[in-house]
Design a protein around this nucleic acid. Structure first.
Lengths: 199, 199
DNA sequence: GACTCGAAGTGAGTGGCGCTTACTTGCTGT
DNA sequence: ACAGCAAGTAAGCGCCACTCACTTCGAGTC
């Protein structure tokens, strides 16, 4: 990240640079402790420059969140495909992946959800989220076979999502005292996955 | 709520008044769209007045969150005690209560969690949260009897919490498309409760 | 290769915010 | 009656999001 003042007048790709800078700031200062001004400062441009690329602060944050969703989707996809052995392994892997993402990209994770300021019905946001959830549904379908109707796949997938989402947030918010090591967390995930997927 | 300018110089109980005003603002404008200045304006005092009662904005927000936790605890306690019939009824009732609180006090609910700015290790906050969780543990113990060790009670209670917490947030964030009516939500809760509490 | 036109920058300015400071008010205890 | 202190005020500071009038410079045209 370039804190050094630019030599050229035009930046090159300020838009992408800003998104990345804000991502870092969000992790450093928390999901609501950063400012666009500071991001501009770090990028070595004036505080007015960001508004040539985004209509307002919300749109920058939105771009950071969207990129986060995509990143998480990629990680989930990879984790599910890499998991073998137990037929429940891919589903467990998805859960662990979700929790790990929340821990390692806490700030962005918070933005991805709870970004319900003016984005209540943002179709692009929803589409990217959907793509993420599709990975879950795909693995649930793979586990359950072709028997059950889509509605049942959806139901189970949502149950899994509820659990892991709650866990992720309780974890990063420090709202539980049972501090699990990686092994214990994996066992918890396995237990949950079994309970949700059985019968 | 008094928007009318006061007649007396001294307010009477500005502290409590502010907490209530901020609570309302949080619901109106969202968990991060309100300002202390506006709360002061609504209370009919100068923007400096709040700082005679709170060291900073964070402490006001904290007070609002604390009051919220207590309110939720009371509702959960009442809901659990009122539930009869099925032995799982109290546990289901707790879940529905949690989800309903999140819906009706969305702003405060968001504050109660995700208030991890400087409050990471706030013992009072944790204590109030604990008191809330105790209600869950009490009902789980009631369901399971004296057999299982405390650790198992804790485990099951946390599973319930994960699930309902995830549901509450996905719900208020509008992150799922299966829009459940009250009956369907109750059935979902029942299904989950059964899966978690069985064997 | 000069010219122009628009995208991408600048710097100064606005209003609102959180918070502080120095001062005032008026209730409460003696 | 009065002192002292808790609880208010107005004014001001620095930071923020965002705007506006202006400048720079690179890409496309002749």
């Amino acid at each position: 990240m370039e804190t050094i003042p630019r030599t050229q007048y035009h930046h090159g790709d300020l838009r992408a640079h800003l998104v990345e800078t804000v991502r870092i700031l969000v992790e450093e200062k928390g999901a609501d402790g950063f400012s666009i001004s500071e991001a501009a400062r770090r990028a070595g441009v004036s505080s007015a420059a960001p508004y040539k690329h985004f209509s307002d602060r919300g749109q920058i944050v939105r771009a950071v969140a969207l990129a986060g969703i995509d990143r998480m989707r990629d990680q989930m996809d990879a984790a599910a495909k890499a998991a073998t052995g137990d037929p429940l392994a891919p589903i467990m892997a998805l859960g662990l992946c979700y929790a790990n993402f929340a821990r390692t990209e806490q700030g962005v994770f918070r933005l991805m959800f709870g970004l319900t300021k003016g984005h209540e019905e943002d179709p692009e946001m929803q589409a990217h989220g959907e793509a993420c959830f599709d990975v879950v549904k795909r693995e649930v379908r793979a586990f359950m076979g072709d028997g059950p109707p889509d509605q049942e796949i959806e139901r189970r997938s949502y149950m899994l999502h509820m659990f892991v989402h709650g866990h992720a947030f309780l974890e990063i918010d420090g709202k539980h005292d049972l501090d699990l090591d990686a092994g214990q967390e994996a066992m918890l995930m396995a237990d949950i996955a079994r309970r949700i997927m059985q019968d």
